[in-house]
Design a protein around this nucleic acid. Structure first.
Lengths: 240, 240, 240, 240
DNA sequence: AATGAATGAGAGTTCATTCAT
DNA sequence: CATGAATGAACTCTCATTCAT
């Protein structure tokens, strides 16, 4: 669990000294915290256990993070929020059709978030957000808003370039987010809602949903881009 | 939170007037517990608060339910598990095509569960199931298994009657359950993952998903897997 | 568990009506209470269980006895304290040697107390007396003092008649009480201090102890009352 | 209540100065617990009070002992169970007659147990053992069994060496244990069963009982070891 | 007279957080 | 920097006692 260019590195004063060991501390704590938060939830994770898994004492944890809530926020930044600047830059530089951009976006999300532990944080927020309003607010600011903004820019690019028909962008955002949310839940709660093992191929599922959305949004000339597909355009009626 | 046609009410029907209050207690407690469990989760709900919301004291709660876990089980039975016998009977008696049966099933589910507080229990189990194995097991026995069995019977009926092509029934079950799970999450966690309010019409969404599934399973006369038809069948590729 | 001529009968106003059933109530409650107090101790006996064993409801118990402590006092009176008037009378009327009187006294004690449940009350007071000073005081007044008085009178009679040598009567009392206490403990705590089953014949043990005491107290003329026994007089040195 | 030569002290000998306090904690807690358990019994002793008497807060107690029951077990080990290895060694090395060994054994017991607070634990088990089966079992394993084994070895030595006549060793054990049990009760329950203060000299009492047992068990040659005493051998008839 | 539903103080135990070392 | 002993508020569950019916 490497922590390259971590957001926390920037705020944590402990980093003053260049000593290797000490440098690694916050990262180890964040990694341990991520594991445990995802595994047990926020409330049910004991700070002592986080410290123990990071190989330090309880006191040390509070040396780096003033409270359990701040620890959680740091985990969110490290794994989700702090990456948006990088992602935004990546997408600013993207060349190609907006449809490809959307496909790429969803793939990237799956590779860097959905597939990893980090996706558990979203499930966690859905579960416990109501009990920790400060955390929920923080999460919305750091993750939800930037994520939506990124998608919004993609859709706007499509509209501006004439690739996508004018639309209610907020709804469109949602039709991309919904399958992501579903996949995260499926990953982290399978034990409860499914008996059998893996009945779902996440990458295929995501690709299909991407096509559904793209088809639904694309400007169609007199006739479908490809005959036989146009009529089939599987609009998700509920999502509009 | 009214408690209409409560499971408990059915066991002990009418009584003398002076027992009105006592009679009502379990129902009131179950209703209060449902509210709070759904609102805050299992661990974060304090027994005293359940009692207070039902208008009684802490001790009274434990007069009716020997522990918080038993209270939760009673809530699950009352709102989900205990209704399967009734639902099973209803479906045994169903006349019509299996496709209609499936549509009806999903509608009924939405009306009686998805739309109600009860759907919060599923979200709760997904969130906290791992921390309370005994509850997770109980939930699987009382809700997941019967639910899957019911769906299994529907699909089998379709296969037997020739309406549906032979399939992996377990996968099919999952393609029906997935959108339900998604809707429950959307309902109970909207605050976290969505900015705007209602971007989703659950009934339409569910109807669309129903058609997707039905199309995917139906025996097609013309000639299956042929271009022009296949394209119309919006197969969810990820779900297989 | 008959309750003949109960002390409680005299104070309990409920007895006004001559109805058979009601008449029996307090006695049944006292019997149940005795059983449970002896079995579990005072603190660990729940009032509800007493009521249940007596076949009445919790409320009824408090109708007859204003508190658990009063219930206990009534049990003590019923089984121990209230019998002293009768026993005193019996001993006032005793004709025969004082040695026989003492033997008879110990036998009677064994038959009517030691052997019965009632002996458990003494063990109970030794165990929990310190935690319930009011009960301890009551027990001393109602049981210990009258018991000691009775023994004192016996010894005094022996001294007055010349059968016993002058002695410290309080110590003598103690040498009679000690084996009784020991037997009660042995009966009610055997499970803890003994592995094997019955290694002790209480009646023989008591008879032996009686002889020890009598021998120790008796005036001996030039030679023992009976040759070969006198020298054997197994004085208990520690008890003096 | 000082904790000299504590069992715990033996496991972790000297440490740095700064750990003085921490080092002393378990001993202080055990001492406080012993005091209170003996004074009030197990159930009636509140954990918070144990902590308070040791000068720490409620939470600290549970830092050292995971539950009240474990605390009690530790008290038993510290004061009784843990000393048997030492005692056994002492007796293996004993040189002299078995009669002397038995006398020594009873003296040692009185000095190191009977006279001390520790004897209150036995009284406690007799009172509350039935309500806490796990504790009773532990006590039997740690104290009753090793104690009986030690006595058994003594008697067996006497038989093997020809000092004692063949006997039912289990009964013999009991005749030694009985006066010990009685003395412990007398010590800790005096307030209830005796009016006057010290009517009993425990050491004399114990010495007398020792002679009774030794006389009862000893092999007598053709004629008593000493004329006039043999016939006097004050057999405790009840104990057989 | 009898019930049993209701109460609420109090017990054992947990855990985020502090701070002397 | 790092530790881990110490804290105390908070939580679940118990049970003697009350009182409307």
């Amino acid at each position: 669990m490497s922590t390259p260019r971590s957001f926390v590195d920037k705020i944590c004063p402990v980093r003053a000294k260049r000593e290797r060991r000490k440098e690694a501390r916050p990262g180890e704590l964040l990694a341990a915290a991520l594991d445990l938060f995802v595994e047990k939830g926020f409330a049910a994770t004991r700070s002592e256990e986080v410290a123990a898994r990071a190989g330090v004492s309880k006191g040390t944890l509070f040396l780096y993070f003033p409270s359990k809530e701040e620890l959680f926020k740091a985990v969110v930044i490290e794994n989700l929020g702090g990456r948006f600047t990088e992602w935004n830059a990546e997408f600013e530089a993207f060349e190609g059709t907006t449809a490809d951009m959307l496909r790429y976006c969803m793939n990237v999300w799956w590779e860097r978030v959905g597939k990893t532990q980090a996706s558990g944080l979203t499930k966690l927020m859905m579960s416990e957000g109501a009990n920790f309003p400060a955390l929920a607010e923080f999460y919305r600011e750091q993750v939800v808003r930037p994520g939506h903004d990124l998608l919004r820019r993609i859709f706007q690019r499509g509209i501006d370039s004439g690739e996508f028909a004018p639309m209610d962008v907020d709804h469109a955002i949602y039709s991309v987010v919904a399958p992501m949310v579903f996949l995260m839940l499926w990953k982290h709660s399978a034990m409860v809602c499914v008996d059998g093992a893996a009945a779902l191929d996440p990458e295929k599922y995501l690709a299909t949903q991407a096509e559904v959305v793209i088809n639904g949004l694309s400007v169609r000339s007199g006739r479908p881009t490809e005959p036989g597909v146009s009529s089939a355009a599987p609009k998700i009626e509920g999502l509009s």
